[in-house]
Design a protein around this nucleic acid. Structure first.
Lengths: 210, 210
DNA sequence: GCAATTATTTAACAATGCTCAATAATTACT
DNA sequence: AGTAATTATTGAGCATTGTTAAATAATTGC
């Protein structure tokens, strides 16, 4: 058979991504396979390779959609409060809630095995940056005097830390013994870190920023 | 052939683990295979399955050895300083340096695909806990008044955050654009977080711990 | 309505984790 | 010493994986 034209190229792409995403509701990223995705689409593997370069490429596009959802969820919060620490916490909770409700998709974002992070395309990096910038805006509001470099750095610290808490507390049961929820951990991280970040530095140790 | 007795059961175990570790010097965890390990040992896959239940089991033992190295490295620091924040930073740098010098082993520790974290054995969890306890000792020294729960929680927050920074900055190039080293990020995290944690709480927001 | 195009499939390759029957070397026993 | 029981090790095999490339069938253009 050929040129069934049941779906346009664009529809096929959408279909493939949606199929992969649905499969990730039930399985983890490592259990996902091209044949499974193709089967769910009602097509064969060969078709998949006409739309995407390979499986990592497909998964990269899944990730891009996930990042967009995260970004939109953050925007949907419509934060207007002057309590910028509370705002950052709200953003963190968007991550956390998404990680809890879509562990498969979340896992995939930070999966270094499947994705080859060595050469992430520009359009993807820009999406990541726009997420960072949300935090940077809040940080800048907290300390208007901070340099751009310092704000960037701080946003990375916060994002990485939130990420660490999300992954370790969700995929790993290393915390089973310490009966504290990931919400609590993130609350602790952000409140204490921001508190320390904004505390007037009397005489900070060498190597300290700001 | 049979019963070559070239190696005892225990020697085989050691040989297998060492072979896996050596392979991880050049490849990432996902590229590791049973046949490769067996070949490096000078044996066949079948032998591997007489020593370990399966590949995840083997890798779990690799991880256990990595954790031991980390723990020993921490002890070797022989920290006696009263500057407990500095001590924690020293521990963090042990992690970071190990992650940099042995990315394959480091990656494996936090790999949720390969390892099935659902049911980590007790002896493994205890190893993790002993690493945590090093941090907890320092935290307890910083704030003797803090409850055991609070100290445990805080150690988890710090460990997760350090982990997040290590993984994201090593495997992921999301930080390529923000020209700051992982050392700087960790320094920022720890100094600010501890500062915030120890800052006398005048009137903290609701939900705050301590 | 025939020919060119192309969407889709099928088959195939190499490699994976894992199992189990075949095999060969060492012990145990007479 | 020589046969029998034991067992360490292998090798073949299964199902699955990602990926490619040739075969196939349907649509378009003439």
């Amino acid at each position: 058979m050929a040129r069934r034209s049941d779906h346009t190229r664009e529809e096929l792409k959408e279909l493939a991504l949606k199929s992969a995403e649905e499969l990730l509701n039930d399985k983890s990223a490592s259990e996902l396979s091209t044949r499974q995705i193709a089967a769910k689409m009602g097509y064969t593997v060969g078709t998949l390779y006409q739309i995407f370069k390979n499986l990592p490429d497909l998964l990269l596009h899944v990730n891009a959609r996930t990042l967009k959802i995260l970004y939109d969820d953050c925007l949907a919060l419509n934060l207007t409060s002057d309590n910028h620490q509370k705002n950052i916490l709200a953003y963190a909770n968007v991550y956390l809630e998404f990680a809890h409700s879509h562990p498969g998709l979340w896992e995939l974002i930070f999966d270094n095995q499947i994705l080859n992070d060595d050469e992430l395309p520009d359009w993807y990096l820009q999406q990541v940056n726009s997420l960072f910038s949300l935090i940077e805006i809040q940080l800048k509001a907290i300390q208007p005097g901070a340099s751009a470099t310092e704000v960037t750095k701080t946003s990375r610290v916060l994002w990485s830390s939130v990420h660490g808490i999300c992954t370790l507390s969700i995929n790993n049961n290393l915390f089973a013994q310490s009966a504290c929820s990931s919400e609590e951990l993130i609350q602790s991280l952000i409140s204490h870190f921001i508190m320390g970040w904004t505390t007037p530095t009397k005489q900070k140790a060498r190597g300290k920023s700001e």
